[in-house]
Write a protein that binds this DNA or RNA. Structure first.
Lengths: 352, 352
DNA sequence: GGCGCAACGGAAAAGGTTTTCCTCTGGGTT
DNA sequence: AACCCAGAGGAAAACCTTTTCCGTTGCGCC
């Protein structure tokens, strides 16, 4: 096991600036200038140093540079839920945005274990990261991470936080659900039900309200008994259909709280001989390709643009590192992705 | 935008060891000794330093430590496929194993773009990572990553590499498929088909051969026409059933190359009134919870123990950092996870 | 009372890089 | 011929921590 006490094994050391200077017969300062295009150097000196450095495979030691610059050019990414379907695109987006600034990402999966989270944060602070992004949605706002007095910018992406002074980015669940509602209404559906996840999730409440707003904006009544809250599973979608059809046979559309739920709903309807979309139109939420595309018919659904959210998070983090201060929530738009479960012409993506 | 040329914005600097020494009225060397339990110090000196350090929120700068130790206590993780279902558990396992050694992980998603991969590797080498783990399966063996002369241990986890001198870890696809076959045979099935992914995947060939071996070991004939290669999708599983039933009505079990395929197969069978598992038993591969558990009936399937594979990768990386040299492939066992699609008593996990 | 030894803690080097400041050389000017 | 200046590159400090090597102090002992 490697532990901080072990010495490094004997391994050919990477070339240092000193090695280059020695080989090229100049001083270390000159090498630095030659390689970085600084100072007053003859062209041939510069060139000689360059070729020597290349020959030796010299690569400046970022650790030393960071020590000097007081910037490590790294950030920490803490994911509080285990990496799942949602964190991945966010993460990709973040990397995308940060790559341009040549910033690397430390990954920490803290899976809701406070002790582990503490340890990760300690480690990140010791490594002098330039910033920390926290991601991973939960039912409720999480507590702000404890920096122990350190002064490092922290951004919450696809995560909610109780601290009003903290900046955080979330998808516009309300708007997304609205979009779904508008789509159904635009297709002539009037008797719309809502099968969704556990009410304790803020996203569930937002989506419910967004849908409601769309309906009411078009003069359609909002009925409590057409809203069924359960779990985030296919099984719940399946079960909900039974309840729904027993209560309300006149339903002509169901807006679902997630694609998984939607798939359960679609399967259940098909089994009962209810045609989708002819008899009942279905719209999902998440655009989780693996589910949405495999459903028969493929799901029209709402995409939260998580990669874009990640990219935005990266950009904002960059700004914060440069001294910007930000606070409060920013909600980023969702998009409707049209497939076949609503019967609309397949028009690709419609901007929100 | 942050760029290497920008100065750090004015932000309260973290306390240094000098600040602590100054505040405590001792020298920096003494502070170091007090905090690290080295040297000969009076107990009260030690205590005084400790409280001062705590008061100032002092946290040793890992960058400076790494410079001195010539070990950065970081590793790079390069994923060549976009982070998907498979990389995540591997990654968790790696983190798990490395956490004990207080090693942090740099995440790089190179999504098969060689230029981007190059840039990532450069960046990792500049940061003096102690090692690099490459993950992300592809159809064929990938080329070894190019370290440009640097001497850093590299391990491939859930990835194949053309270089015979490189160490890599893979799940035992052959053994896993064998396990699936044994299970079906043990339940009395004798006419077993195989619906799987594209033949160009080495995993597909391994699994096919593993299944074959199990059948032949029990004196069952292996028939080419009962093997259907297609894509990794549910749709293919669905389509394959049509072909299969037309050709071979006597089938009493289908071993599938993935859970997605299996789900397509199960759905297709149900639609045709074929009962699962009564008429035909189905076994999947992957144990992708979200698919396997939602299938009706839930899939009996093979788990590749990817988290364990990741943990193993972490352990081996630790050994390599300490000077161990390793080469060649190591295959890690799979497990059978019994649910309901084969009709066996639900006995939980059976070790391989 | 002088000596030696143990206990304690300070000084300084090392690690690799950048940057500022300084020195040296040579050419041009008066 | 003396001087100045620019051009070129070297020396050293700074970043922060650890560790080795010493120096100092106080005590016990002869």
């Amino acid at each position: 096991m490697a532990s901080p006490d072990d010495p490094a094994p004997t391994r050919p050391r990477p070339a240092t600036i000193w090695d280059v200077a020695h080989a090229a017969g100049v001083s270390v300062g000159t090498v630095s200038k030659a390689l970085n295009g600084r100072g007053q150097l003859r062209a041939e000196t510069r060139e000689a140093v360059r070729t020597t450095a290349a020959r030796l495979g010299f690569r400046p030691n970022d650790l030393a540079q960071s020590l000097l610059r007081k910037r490590s050019f790294t950030i920490g990414l803490i994911s509080t839920d285990r990496y799942g379907r949602f964190s991945i695109p966010v993460l990709e987006g973040i990397e995308d945005a940060l790559e341009a600034a040549r910033i690397s990402v430390f990954l920490c999966s803290a899976s809701d274990d406070p002790a582990r989270e503490r340890q990760h944060i300690d480690s990140l602070l010791a490594k002098r990261v330039d910033g920390i992004i926290v991601t991973g949605r939960r039912t409720d706002a999480r507590t702000a991470i404890d920096l122990g007095g350190a002064s490092v910018p922290v951004l919450y992406a696809f995560a909610q936080v109780a601290d009003p002074a903290a900046p955080y980015l979330l998808p516009d669940d309300f708007g997304g659900a609205s979009l779904a509602g508008e789509h159904l209404i635009g297709l002539g559906r009037t008797c719309i039900a809502h099968v969704t996840g556990p009410e304790r999730f803020e996203a569930v409440r937002q989506r419910r309200d967004g849908l409601r707003q769309a309906l009411e904006a078009h003069g359609l009544a909002w009925r409590r008994e057409r809203v069924l809250s359960g779990s985030w599973s296919e099984a719940w979608g399946h079960a909900a259909v039974t309840k729904l059809l027993a209560r309300r046979p006149g339903i002509d559309a169901i807006a679902c709280g997630s694609d998984q739920i939607a798939r359960g709903v679609v399967d259940a309807l098909r089994e009962r001989g209810v045609r989708v979309p002819d008899d009942v139109a279905i719209v999902g939420f998440d655009n989780w390709e693996i589910i949405a595309a495999a459903t028969r018919p493929p799901l029209t659904t709402i995409d939260m643009n998580l990669k874009h959210l990640g990219r935005e998070a990266g950009m904002r983090m960059l700004a914060m590192i440069d001294g910007d201060i930000a606070a409060g929530v920013v909600r980023l738009g969702c998009q409707l992705v049209v497939r076949e479960s609503c019967g609309a012409a397949r028009a690709g993506r419609v901007a929100s």
